[in-house]
Amino acid sequence: MLDWKMDFTWEILPRLLLAAGNTMLAAGGGYAVAVVLGLVFALAQRTRSRTLTFIVRELVEFIRSTPLLLQIFFIFYVGPQFGLRLSPWAAGLIAIGLHYAAYLSEVYRGGIENVPKGQWEAARAINLSTVTTYRRIIIPQALPPALAGMGNYLVGIFKDTPMLSVIGVAELMHTANSIGAENFRYLEPYTIVGLIFLAISLPTAWLIRRFETALRRKMGLTR
């Protein structure tokens, strides 16, 4: 039956906490890629070029419809076939960043499309350029409602980082696997990993919810 070993727990905890740092690094790095690339995807779909809009739209759909795990394998293994070698970290960040860029682009698009048409017309009426209109009028209004969605995907990326273990990124899951294989003990490492995830993602999600309500109240959406 169940025997939780406390000394074993103390022995492996430092290693796991260190790995948790790597997990957060991976999440942060992937998120940085996603935030920027997502904006590119969103704006590309708002250009006048029908072809570009169509291609990016389909690309986003494709990325969102297929498993991240498969995308990670694809990016990691296909490169070498054509002579391009990517480190696990590089492949992982690209894969996870690309995946979440597709999601974030939808968040951005939703935010931009929620800005009333009258705002564009008013900006045109005072002769602002398109770039200035985006920068000064549209994005400041589109951002606040998008922030909650962006926050949720930050938590989402964090929870998807264990998939990077399959290409050898030494994050939490990978470390727990090694510990398990070395000691033939899985109870403690896997349970601790679960608890670490809970300890990070629950408060974060709670903060995001708080932030969202505060924001809605501030924008006069709710009382």
Partner: peptide, 12 residues
């Protein structure tokens, strides 16, 4: 279930 990863859950 929402606070942890699906992969962690599977292994667990």
């Amino acid at each position: 279930f929402r606070g942890t990863s699906l992969l962690v859950q599977l292994y667990w």
